[in-house]
């Protein structure tokens, strides 16, 4: 599985790469888009919150696929684990504080990440892909069978988060959930920016390019990738928990192969190996899906397919990756 990445754009810049101007600008862009979205779609904040939850899943996938080169079609297992953990904590144990539910989601996502990582990282290439598909089906079937805990195919209901910080009730318009989501996304973004440029992030980029070389430097690719899987699981867990808290139901679709595949599509659409690529891909895909499915309920999937083919053929680095490469070239030409 070869994918063009945007890592190289970051790597060329001989500048200090600590958290600095570029990151603050990135953060500002995220917050600006969030504010614009709030005022543009005041009646559709639920969709925007769903986009944020999906974005967290795609960011999480980018960590293992874009930054480490792991091929997976089962990443929703991590997301679903977070969603069910947060939901079960509330529905069965009466833990209704949203931050506590979030903590459950993060831990469950990380544990699912560890489990998936240990299994998936035993193989490479196509067998790895097959293992990931098998895993998501196992997770899905487990949630389906354990219906006294998960509600099975009816979904898990009875999730009733209390006011956030004891102050902000989760209202019908979804304002609190949206703001909560934006804050979570901003925090995750900052943390991930730090991680991808840390020594560990550099190690992972090396592993993606040549694991044998990394071994000959005395580092264990498997250990590093497993660690990245746990981090990735925690991020997906945030997304899952956000989904459970904002929609107050958890369905089997959050643990599905479809969701896993869609998240990979969103990542490739935006551009792998870049946090902004992941975010761009998610926003474009989810919006496109929403707009097109409303305009033409019969052919919207065809159009999504056409968009994907167009991007893969004409902009193989993804939407963000291609745009970033274009501007990098122009800057160099000057």
């Amino acid at each position: 599985m070869t994918m063009t990445t945007t890592n190289d754009l970051i790597a060329t810049a001989p500048v200090r790469r600590r958290f600095g101007g570029g990151d603050l600008a990135g953060l500002a862009v995220i917050l600006l888009v969030a504010v614009i979205g709030y005022f543009l779609f005041p009646n559709n904040l639920a969709l925007l919150t769903r986009i944020i939850a999906a974005a967290l899943l795609v960011l999480s996938l980018d960590l293992v696929t874009g930054y480490c080169g792991v091929a997976t079609l089962g990443h929703a297992a991590l997301f679903g684990a977070g969603a069910y953990a947060a939901g079960i904590a509330s529905a069965h144990y009466g833990i209704n504080d949203p931050l506590a539910m979030l903590a459950f989601g993060i831990v469950a996502g990380a544990v699912a990440g560890l489990v998936c990582g240990v299994v998936i990282l035993r193989a490479h290439g196509l067998p790895q892909l097959v293992l990931s598909i098998a895993l998501i089906h196992l997770f899905h079937e487990f949630a389906n069978k354990a219906s006294s805990w998960t509600g099975g195919s009816d979904g898990l209901s009875g999730i009733a988060p209390t006011a956030l910080l004891g102050l902000y009730e989760f209202d019908l318009w979804g304002r609190t959930a949206y703001v909560f989501g934006v804050v979570l996304l901003a925090i995750v973004f900052v943390v991930l920016r730090l991680i991808v440029r840390s020594p560990f992030g550099m190690l992972c980029r090396g592993i993606k390019e040549d694991p044998i070389r990394i071994r000959s430097m005395g580092a264990s690719p498997k250990m590093a990738l497993t660690k990245m899987y746990v981090i990735s699981g925690a991020v997906a867990g945030v997304g899952g928990a956000l989904n459970a808290i904002s929609t107050q139901v958890v369905g089997l679709d959050s643990l599905s192969f479809t969701m896993s595949a869609e998240s990979l599509v969103m990542l490739v659409l935006g551009g792998t190996g870049s946090l902004f690529g992941a975010l761009t891909g998610t926003v474009v895909f989810m919006f496109f899906e929403d707009v097109v499915s409303a305009a033409n309920p019969f052919h919207w999937l065809t159009m999504v397919g056409a968009l994907l083919i167009a991007v893969v053929l004409f902009a193989p680095k993804g939407i963000y990756g291609t745009a970033a490469a274009f501007f990098a070239r122009r800057k160099e030409a000057q």
């Binding site: 200090r16 790469r17 600590r18 730090l194 991680i195 440029r197 840390s198 020594p199 560990f200 550099m202 190690l203 430097m217 005395g218 580092a219 590093a224 660690k227 981090i231």
Partner: peptide, 15 residues
């Protein structure tokens, strides 16, 4: 960083 046991650090940058 690998030699000095810091290749797994999640923060900072070698620069």
């Amino acid at each position: 960083l690998q030699r000095s046991g810091r290749a797994g650090r999640l923060f900072g940058n070698f620069l």
